[in-house]
Amino acid sequence: MKRLIYILIVVIFFGNNSIAQEKDSIFDLKNYRTSFSFKTVKQEDNSRLVEVEFLAKNKKDRKDKLPIYDAEIKFYNDETLLGSAKTSKDGIASLVVPEDHTYVTDEEGNITLKAVFEGTDGLDEEEDEVTIKDIFLKLDLQEIDSVKTVKVNAYSIDSLGTEQPVEEATVGFFIQGMLSKMKIEEGDISDGEYEFEMLTKVPGDTIGNITIYAMIQDSDEYGNVSQKQTINWGAGQVNDDTTGDGNKLWSEAAPVWMYVVLTILLLGVWINYLYTIIHLFKIKKEGKELDVTM
């Protein structure tokens, strides 16, 4: 497997002239087909992430996926070049378009984004595009009559600059954990709004802060949109130290049975040693007595 990856890396890295050399090797590119998937995420600061995942997948073994790295990907909004990026070791190329960028839109306000790989001698040209509507999420966390309420507003801005509520979209809510996000709610936005009562007894970090995410994911109409907010709604961490460890392997004092067993074992052995030494002294004493009588 590692060998295949190295060979593929060589193919990409040396681009134009490498494929001919590789024909003799055991690796055959014909067994693989490329996968070029493009997505866009509107991030929390309203900037937009455009990202391509470029992989080679084995036609027979679906588990056999190889990242294609160092491939140059160009990102376009219609015909306007937004920028370019090279795929990483994981086969991912990404670009962040700033919040204040003005996109080219069609009559209905849709933005068309396109990612293009122009190809090498070893790999064919690839292209993928998405058409989405630019929307905004506004997350509002409030305590209404002592009830912690999470509210999200989704809207787009028309050509006149007025907010137009999103009619329909599915939104998920998550809490940031140590390694990943935990889903706590999912619902449909209607008339640009969705709200729910926040879970109680969420621990939060050391000072009780929790970060809540509202996310629209893989929507045909809006792509991926994310918004987050941190609030001191967590219960805080329980200080385990107050309970103490007791006699565990890792605590300062060993488990009691360990002391008991060790004491029994050692006493059992050392008492015998002592018994032997006492008898040696007796032999010595007998010897002395014999010396005297002789």
């Binding site: 018994y275 032997t276 008898h279 007796k282 032999i283 007998e286 010897g287 002395k288 014999l290 010396d291």
Partner: peptide
């Protein structure tokens, strides 16, 4: 040799320990 004289009781004692 700690005064070992190879007497019967000494031998017996040494054998035992």
């Amino acid at each position: 040799a700690i005064g070992y004289q190879d007497t019967e009781p000494q031998r017996h004692r040494l054998e035992k320990i």
